[in-house]
């Protein structure tokens, strides 16, 4: 055992000396070159095969994710089909009721479904894609029926919508249940809208529902816009102002409805 240990100590000493000498005279680097030259073909084959295998595994893993997503979507589709059936039944019931009450069915017009495809750069305008022709000034609403803007420049299949938040947007509005005009709604360029020219004698409270009022710029009455968020009363100014909160993130709009004029 002692002999073995001595041999080992000698081996380490010689190797240390060799390394120290090779720092100044790099004769041992040739060994490295040979070693790399011998192994490089095998390494190349192994590496390319592994990369190929890994790519396949990743494709397989992503296929698994897609499959899971598809399962989820199938579940959603089933729920939507149920909802659609319910809607059809409600529609039939509605038609029957209207017929019974003698309401003229042709008076009502179905809104046009449109998909938001983009946003105009630097402007509070969105671009929508629709299948039917729309006209300038038509109201654009969320699927829930909240007003988001007005058709600004109509096209055959795509149009530009001026959002209510745009600084160019201003029109008369009313408080729901009180049909007389209460002020002018203006866009501020931010998410909040400004309700300007509010008469001081009008009873307006926080949370009041602001709706559209048919006029030159807006063709339909009573479309929900938002709620009064903050009332600013001024002793100096002739009119009060209020902030109107819509609660819509316009960047996330994907589908809208265009009301026919």
């Amino acid at each position: 055992m002692r002999k073995k240990r001595n041999v080992f100590v000698w081996a380490i000493t010689i190797l240390t000396l060799l390394i120290v000498v090779s720092l100044f005279f790099p004769f041992l680097s040739g060994v490295r070159e040979v070693g790399r030259a011998v192994t490089s073909p095998l390494q190349g084959v192994l590496l390319s095969a592994t990369v190929e295998l890994k790519n396949r595994v990743e494709v397989f893993q992503s296929a698994e994710e897609v499959r899971n997503e598809l399962e989820k979507l199938r579940g959603i589709e089933k729920r939507l089909q149920v909802a659609l059936t319910e809607k059809e039944e409600l529609k039939k019931e509605n038609t029957a009721l209207k017929e019974a009450l003698g309401v003229d069915l042709h008076q009502e017009k179905e809104p046009i479904f449109a998909k938001v495809t983009g946003r105009e750069l630097g402007k509070d305008r969105v671009i929508i894609h629709h299948t039917e022709k729309v006209s300038e000034g038509s109201l654009v609403m969320t699927p829930e029926g909240q007003l988001v803007g007005v058709i600004d420049s109509p096209g055959e299949r795509s149009s530009s919508v001026r959002l209510l938040t745009s600084k160019e947007s201003s029109f008369e509005v009313a408080i729901q249940s009180k049909n007389d005009p209460i002020g002018v709604l203006r866009g501020t360029g931010e998410r909040e809208l400004l309700l300007d020219l509010l008469p001081k004698d009008k009873d307006i409270k926080r949370g009041d529902r602001v709706v559209s009022l048919a006029g030159e710029k807006v063709p339909i009455d009573g479309v929900f816009i938002g709620r009064v968020a903050e009332l600013k009363e001024s002793d100096v100014e002739a009119f009060n102002t209020a902030k109107v909160w819509q609660g819509i993130d316009h960047r996330r709009l994907t589908y809208v409805f265009v009301a026919k004029k």
Partner: peptide, 11 residues
């Protein structure tokens, strides 16, 4: 430098 790892491994 060639041999450093060999030395480290041996020690």
């Amino acid at each position: 430098p060639f041999g450093v790892y060999t030395l480290c491994f041996l020690v």
